[in-house]
Simulated assay, not measured.
Amino acid sequence: MVIFVTIFLVIVYLSVCAVFARSMGLVKCIDPNKAYQKENRRHFLDGYKNWKSEEYIIKSFDGYELHTTYIPSAVPSKKFVILVHSSTYCRIGGIKYFNIFRKMGYNGILFDLRGHGDNQKSPSTWGIKESKDLLSVINDTVDRFGDDIKIGVHGECLGGVTALTALKYHPHISFVIADSCYNSLYSLLCKLAQQIAHVSPVLFDPAVIFFRLMFGYSYKKIFTKDSLNGNTVPICFIQGDSDCVVPVKDTVELENATEGYTEMHIFEGADHTRNIIADADRYEEIIKNFLYSVHCLELAA
């Protein structure tokens, strides 16, 4: 009897680990309409409703289709910013950041990460394929608007990790603003497991094996900082000191890994990806000052 109970408990335990592994690959994303309502309630879309915009689809490196929105600046400009949203969200989440860039004469490119928003369902690869998708968006933007344009990238959480991971491919960009970015994917998923199940994340270690079998790679071996070796693209790191998902030490590790110009700004009392909500005026000032520094670096080069 004891043996049967033990076998049953082991099967249940492994089943839970398998379900957890699947949920980390096939993430449950917010409906774009609900995301729009959420951003609208916070008045982030007040200006956006009156702006011209264009919707189109970009085919990525493997043929996957990325739904994209182009928002031109108020006056003709060669400056572009690509805004990359966080995991489980969609491209409308980038508008609150583009509000800042548009004041500075930037055109905006917003796209849904694979498996998110209006895109077809697809497993999240936590930056592996997403970084190549971003390269496709960068190349498409150059093809559409000319090779004399200046492009920067702003991303939060997975969006920022996507941008940082893409740097190893030496993309045609001038800067990255990385908000609430993790370094160790394994540590991130352990923390999420602990928050969901309220148990030691060590209990979910077998999920690593299931995840590899399901999606073809081990999330224990993914470190964002590995993509920053030799990087010289300026990066502005933004992080909340009350982030319940990503610790400040991750941001410190990422800043130490790159060789280019960096800034790091910590928002007191800000939770995960809530830095702009914690202090919108300071957030805007940080971006303005950082872009001014990048401009000065370009002039001095």
Rank of each mutant, 00 (worst) to 15 (best):
V12L: 15
S23E: 12
V27H: 01
C29H: 03
I30P: 01
N33H: 14
K38V: 07
R41K: 14
L45M: 05
G47F: 01
N50I: 04
N50A: 08
K52L: 09
K52E: 14
E55L: 10
I57N: 13
F61R: 05
E65L: 13
L66V: 09
I71N: 02
P72E: 07
P76L: 03
S77G: 02
F80L: 06
I82K: 04
L83R: 00
S86T: 08
Y89M: 04
C90M: 12
Y97K: 05
I100S: 06
R102M: 13
M104L: 15
L110P: 14
H116K: 01
N119T: 07
N119Q: 02
N119R: 00
K129W: 04
I138E: 03
N139Q: 12
T141M: 11
V142S: 02
G146Y: 09
I151D: 08
V153R: 03
V153M: 08
A166C: 11
A166N: 04
Y169W: 11
Y169P: 00
H170E: 14
H172N: 15
I173K: 04
V176Q: 00
Y182H: 10
S184T: 06
S187H: 13
A207L: 09
F215N: 11
K221W: 08
D241A: 00
D243C: 09
D243F: 06
C244H: 14
V252I: 14
E255G: 04
G260Y: 03
Y261M: 14
T273L: 11
I276E: 08
A278R: 10
A280I: 09
D281H: 08
E284F: 05
Y292N: 12
